[in-house]
Design a protein around this nucleic acid. Structure first.
Lengths: 158, 158
DNA sequence: GCGAATTTGTTTGATCCCCAAACAATCTAC
DNA sequence: GTAGATTGTTTGGGGATCAAACAAATTCGC
């Protein structure tokens, strides 16, 4: 008999100073947005993380770039990048060509299937973006991005 | 002549549509803010993550709460919470008391050392918050938090 | 030119976060 | 009291992240 509601009304906890913290708002919002991103792709029976999407866009727009260049652009260690590229390569979306000019590096590029997939992915990302910003006007969304960029530059990389 | 420039001038990559995406700005800013948080604590020779700080505040302000209640407030699975509590308990900041009313649950609470540590942590968080928002006016910071909250509520939990 | 220093990609090892499923202990509902 | 739900824990499986070590290749310094 599905009616157990003898449970306390789940009153929300006292969060103290947390709601006044920018970092806290950022973390919670990021988490919710990530969940929305995942749900958007899951419903379309596609599998992709925000990080993978960003990576694919970077490779598409900068074909031939090396793993180090890509890792720096993504702000991650080169060793972190390896298994991510392996996965995308196994999925047939991306290839590591030998560089004609530097024997140490790989020239990264999308496969034709990768290009096609990225087109699909971009549509899903658009829908996702539309949903998460539905409570905001276009001006507010622009303002939000601008403020986030300011914060990003104030946060010290070190 | 300082001319090591045999290397491409590290020109920044073409990011395509990424800079127009709210999710992308959110993710990058969150990452930079996290790094600043970590650096702030590292310089003070303290060790804490934003998540742990949030957890400690919640426990302090809601002493006696159960692990399930805490997990729900944090938006994580109860099994994810276990090793986190173990670590904080090992550090002597937090204790799991037996609940007087419900033999299944633990009544979480801070130790005296945990209370003291949280006071130190809160100061560091304040300094961190001040730094990341230094490029913004107080009004802009408030607006930013407000916009983030709106986005958070638009992002569908499912 | 040629040896030394640097760069690149990879592997390995260490933490850490996350979830799902299963389990025993305990509580709740009927 | 007994069946069903809840709680905390353990286990197993993904990943993300960095650091250190290595071989191969390139560049630097002279």
């Amino acid at each position: 008999m599905a009616r157990p509601l003898n449970r306390p009304p789940a009153k929300s906890l006292d969060r103290g100073l947390l709601p006044s913290l920018l970092g806290y708002a950022l973390r919670r919002t990021q988490s919710a947005v990530f969940a929305d991103f995942a749900a958007t792709f899951a419903r379309a029976e596609e599998a992709l993380t925000p990080g993978e999407f960003g990576l694919l866009v970077l490779v598409e727009r900068n074909a031939g770039l090396s793993q180090m260049t890509l890792a720096r652009a993504l702000g991650i260690d080169r060793s972190t990048l390896v298994p991510i590229l392996n996965r995308l390569q196994t999925r047939g979306l991306l290839v590591r060509h030998p560089s004609p000019t530097d024997g140490r590096t790989h020239a990264l590029g999308l496969t034709p299937a990768g290009e096609k997939a990225l087109t699909r992915f971009a549509k899903l990302v658009k829908a996702h973006e539309k949903r998460i910003s539905e409570g905001l006007s276009a001006a507010e969304t622009a303002k939000l991005i601008e403020l986030l960029e300011k914060v990003r530059h104030s946060a010290r990389p070190l």
